[in-house]
Design a protein around this nucleic acid. Structure first.
Length: 454
RNA sequence: GUGGUUGUAGUUCAGUUGGUUAGAACGCCUGAUUGUGGUUCAGGAGGUCGCCGGUUCAAGUCCGGUCUUCCACCCCA
């Protein structure tokens, strides 16, 4: 028989991993709720017509397609085969696994537009699938945690989501991250002023790589686009300049000779952020930040860990016409997406999971004979009613084995029951870390466990 | 999608220019130890060397394919 395995880029999560993932999800979710978002869920599969064409040609290739059920070759003939995959595909597959949560969300909004009250705030925490080649921090199945506000253009949305980013990472005790801000309109102005109109995308893609490949190579890559290289090298100077945000904006306005609403919105954003909150932020204005997804039209942001090299762990931005792809125009919105799997990797690398994020019982009841086991059932009922995660060792085996079980599972407390305990109704509560034993009534044990006395 | 890389016990890894019965450490199981775990000691189980094919008297070792791992591109959470 073949060796058992799981598909490339997918993973099993053991008990500790699962519990830790739940811990992160719980923190993100409670912050979403605190900020007034309510959940929705969408199906794992969407029609390919919903998914394709929304992520660019590259993206379309990375969508997992679902083969039609039954005889999927029924609608095809030899000619289709000769024409190649592009012709054949729509005839054998009409569904695909969702690639992100934003496009299904847009579809949901358009489908339910008459029942939705705008502005609509929803959050969504579900897995997505990409047929990418796996790498560090890059999986074929991974979770996104999205929060979007759609149907409003208020400057407050940008502020609110920024505060949300702060609060989420704060609640995870994680502070070595940097929030980067930019604006799509500013990028367009930069491209236009450098004679690169119509080549915005390759311009942005090249600019975005500045951290990775350095200014020299970025300059070279952009020079291949045949724009105004001198202008571009001045951009790079401003990007590197160690000056305040408003001055940076001012310099770029002067250089490009244009001042569209992007520049203005950035100014307003930073001014408001300073006025409205005393939260400590590592937040910067980075004119090289581009972000891949093409549907963004306004402010964009990205969160990168500063001490772990794993790419971005959170990103988002404003889009003016997300639902336009499904025929509903004039619906502005803004969204954010936390990458659960990468956040997990970063917290693991930084050793930031609390001891409590491991699950399992808090106390194990061990027993010396069958009557002790039966008595244990009564005790465990009381413990569980009191809300204590408790377990009763299920088999009649030597006490060493039972202790060993508690030890292996890192169960912090053990109660041992024998004939003496039954007759006196007092039980020894042992701390597995210190070895100390406290003997008391069941009520006393419950009290001790609730406050972690020792 | 392009280029490279990895695969031997549950885990981390040895394994010489192809040559008898493939090793270690840790982990696991049993006992020393019939009401209290972690230490120690003694013993034990566990591998068709990723899979398929080829070269050879002989393949864990060489060759081809395939899958997998990780990495660099592309792109991205």
């Amino acid at each position: 028989m073949e060796k058992l395995s799981i598909p490339k880029g997918t993973r099993d999560f053991g008990q500790i991993e699962s519990f830790r993932r739940k811990y992160i999800i719980e923190k993100i979710q409670s912050n979403f709720i605190k900020y007034g978002f309510a959940p929705i869920e969408t199906p794992t599969m969407e029609h390919l017509s919903v998914l394709t064409g929304k992520y660019g040609d590259e993206g379309d290739q990375l969508i997992f397609k679902v083969l039609n059920s039954g005889d999927f070759l029924k609608k095809t003939d030899c000619g289709d085969y000769d024409q190649g995959a592009k012709t054949l595909l729509p005839k054998i597959a009409e569904k695909g696994l969702r690639y992100d949560l934003t496009v299904p969300f847009a579809r949901h909004v358009v489908m339910n537009r008459h029942n939705i009250t705008f502005p609509f705030k929803r959050y969504q925490i579900q897995p997505v699938w990409r047929a990418d080649r796996p790498q560090r921090g890059r999986y074929r199945e991974f979770y996104q945690c999205d929060a979007d506000i759609i149907g409003t253009r208020s400057y407050w949305n940008e502020i609110e989501l920024t505060l949300l980013i702060h609060d989420v990472f704060k609640s995870l005790n994680f502070d070595s991250f940097e929030v980067k801000i930019n604006h799509r309109e500013v990028l367009f102005a930069m491209a236009a002023a450098a004679d690169l109109k119509g080549k915005e995308t390759p311009f942005c893609v090249a600019l975005d790589k500045i951290d990775k490949i350095g200014t020299e190579k970025v300059l070279h890559e952009i020079s291949l686009l045949q724009g105004d290289s001198e202008m571009v090298s001045k951009y790079l100077e401003i990007i590197d300049a160690d000056v305040g945000k408003s001055l940076k904006i001012e310099k770029l306005v002067k250089l490009t000779g244009t001042s569209n609403k992007g520049f203005e919105e950035l100014n307003v954003f930073f001014k408001n952020l300073d006025e409205l909150t005393d939260r400590k932020f590592n937040i910067s204005l980075d004119f090289s930040l581009a972000r891949g997804l093409s549907y963004y039209t306004g402010m964009i942001y990205e969160v990168k860990p500063t001490e772990v090299n794993i790419g971005s762990i959170c990103g988002g931005g404003r889009y003016d016409n997300l639902t336009g792809m499904f025929g509903l125009k004039g619906m502005s919105g803004i969204g954010i997406s936390f990458g659960l799997d990468r956040i997990y990797d970063v917290l693991a690398a930084s050793n930031l999971f609390p001891e409590t994020a491991k699950g399992g019982p808090k106390v194990l009841i061990t027993h010396l004979d069958t009557s002790a086991f039966k008595h244990g059932i009564k005790i465990i009922e009381k413990l569980r009613k009191a809300g204590i995660a408790a377990d009763l060792f299920p088999d009649a085996v030597k006490i060493q084995k039972q202790m060993n079980y508690a030890n292996k599972l890192a169960i912090p407390y053990v109660i041992t029951i024998g004939s003496e305990e039954i007759s006196q109704a007092r039980y020894p509560l042992k701390s597995m870390s210190t070895g100390e034993i406290l003997t008391s009534s069941v009520e006393g044990i419950i009290e001790n466990l609730k406050i972690d006395r020792f």
